[in-house]
Design a protein around this nucleic acid. Structure first.
Lengths: 337, 337
DNA sequence: CTGAAAGCGCTTACAG
DNA sequence: CTGAAAGCGCTTACAG
């Protein structure tokens, strides 16, 4: 240990290989490091101004978020990708009430991180401000904002929704309803946007009666289905803003003796667990969640650990239509009677 | 800020409320803390010998573990319970190859934690040794070892398996097979043990032909089913070491035109997603995974943050039989012909 | 109850 | 390429 102390300065240099060290000495130091099983102290390093090899991930509203397919996949890919670069992940959950307590209280551990990923920004905007105020690079997932001074990794919600509705139309449907997600959330809004865009581009008029506002919850889907079935004329297809809602909608349809897909075709969004869970596999839009997690870590690495300058990146990942069994051409009129 | 510096010593005392401070001063300090938005530096605190409010969770073999129901539930409950005590969770994954690199490399960030939870010990024994060597209290989940100097939070695998087989027997079955999990893993071994115990206690002889060794993977379940169907006489019921294997077994049965549950009844173990996924809901054994996660955090809190002494606790949580649709009484002989 | 001091183990300039 | 110094912001004894 004395040997160690003597070489302290050089040890630092070898470990961080920032300054040149004579090869001979370098080797010597490396041997002693091994021999003594020397491990630098993270806290000391951090305190003295160095970087940690820890990145944070902040998950909001965890009570309803943590079980979701989205968070499971994102967590998994972030942790794996980070681990590959010898980074650890500090998970920090914020619940609604904690958020109200004020963002600052959350910073204590987060300030240890060299970079922070927001798994979803909704409701955590003040925290984002705080973290950025500490000069910690941030990446926001599932959100796109050109003017935000943080990286954004999002998916093409609008394009995905458009592809879904385009597909339904290609099957011959004209009377197409939608059950939206939470329109206060960007993903919800954009998916509705895509629905409208598809209709427009095919010259199908937009009928407000066919747009039912849900909030991503199964209960909301159920209500929307009821509303749809109250109308005089049923749609022949429904584009639903999430697979979870789609599954609930299908149940509600079945309860009302409406056949899926024969009477009403369904397209979901997410390609989550739920998509293959029902008896009839759901046609849906797949999101590249794994890629999203990986991209987030890579963006953190780029902004936090490399000298490379430049403004934070805005990345939008494409989606993919997954055709399964829940859509068929509409019944011809004569089939009805 | 000068004001702050002047009161430095007292500030420490107020924050950590370890020493008495005159109420008048205490209040004053607290006001200034608020005013200045003072936040103690974690690294400095840690370096000077204090505790961090971070606990670690180590997840081994993440490539195959991370997607499992087990890890999802455990992660969720650990994070939630920790968050409730204002603790953050540092997630550290170890893959097979990394493990071989030597446990010490993993300690860098982990050494920041005030306590560490091992989500599963399999393959990470050396790391456990290392972490305990740093005097960081540890809790191992899903593992029970009286002689281990770490907390153990496990579930009663043997009792659960016994309950499952007892139930099958109560339905009238006598010829009962089992497909085991990985017998190198405690849970796998114990569940087989429970199967045998139940048979013994009912005076049913143990037939090695009816014990098929799987490894928790769906593929292994498929193989086992094939082996079972090669025999002259089929069992009328099978106890399967995990729901995921059970689901695959049911598929294999269906492929062979064997009806479930009429011809062969099935009981699983875990009560995971899979249990309700098939057309016929699986009768299975529920594990209190949420409780397990909570208990782990609580044990860490007890050993890491309280003065309370005493050896680490060994906790074994009970399981529960969940009766659904996959078991019926065996066909009477005459029904066969 | 409250100061003043020493030290935790690193990093970053600064001289050589 | 390599020393010696100062300081990061806390905590823990130690005197008062």
């Amino acid at each position: 240990m004395k040997k160690m102390r003597k070489k302290r300065k050089r040890v630092t240099r070898v470990i961080n290989n920032n300054t040149a060290v004579k090869a001979y000495n370098k080797e010597k130091v490396e041997r002693v490091i091994k021999e003594l099983d020397f491990r630098p102290d993270v806290s000391a390093r951090r305190l003295a101004g160095g970087k940690t090899n820890t990145i944070g991930i902040i998950i909001p509203r965890f009570d309803d978020m943590f079980r979701t397919y989205y968070i499971t996949e994102v967590m998994r890919s972030v942790c794996q990708r980070a681990s590959r670069s010898n980074l650890d992940v500090l998970v920090h959950l914020t619940s609604k009430d904690v958020t109200q307590k004020g963002a600052r209280a959350h910073l204590e551990n987060i300030s240890l991180c060299s970079g922070v990923i927001f798994a979803d920004i909704q409701g955590n905007e003040p925290l984002l401000e705080e973290v950025m105020g500490e000069d910690i690079p941030c990446v926001v997932m599932n959100y796109f904002d050109k003017n935000l001074n943080a990286g954004c990794i999002s998916i093409d919600n609008k394009g995905g929704a458009k592809a879904a509705v385009d597909y339904i139309i290609s099957l011959g449907h004209q009377r197409i309803a939608t059950i939206t997600g939470d329109l206060a959330i960007q993903a919800g809004k954009d998916r509705l946007e895509g629905y409208k865009e598809s209709l427009n581009s095919h010259g199908i008029p937009i009928d407000d009666e066919l747009i039912k506002k849900g909030d991503f919850s199964p209960q909301s889907a159920k209500k929307c289905i009821r509303a749809i079935l109250k109308a005089d004329a049923y749609p022949t297809a429904i584009f639903i803003g999430s697979d979870e809602m789609a599954l609930e909608a299908i149940k509600a349809l079945r309860d009302n003796k409406i056949r899926m897909p024969q009477d009403i075709s369904i397209v979901g969004f997410d390609d989550s667990w739920f998509a293959r869970q029902g008896g009839i596999a759901l046609t849906t839009i797949r999101q590249p969640l794994i890629k999203m997690g990986e991209a987030a870590v890579e963006e953190i690495r780029r902004t936090a650990f490399s000298k490379e300058k430049g403004s934070p990146r805005k990345i939008m990942l494409p989606t993919e239509l997954v055709v399964r069994e829940s859509c068929v051409p509409p019944l011809r009129r004569e089939d009805f009677y």
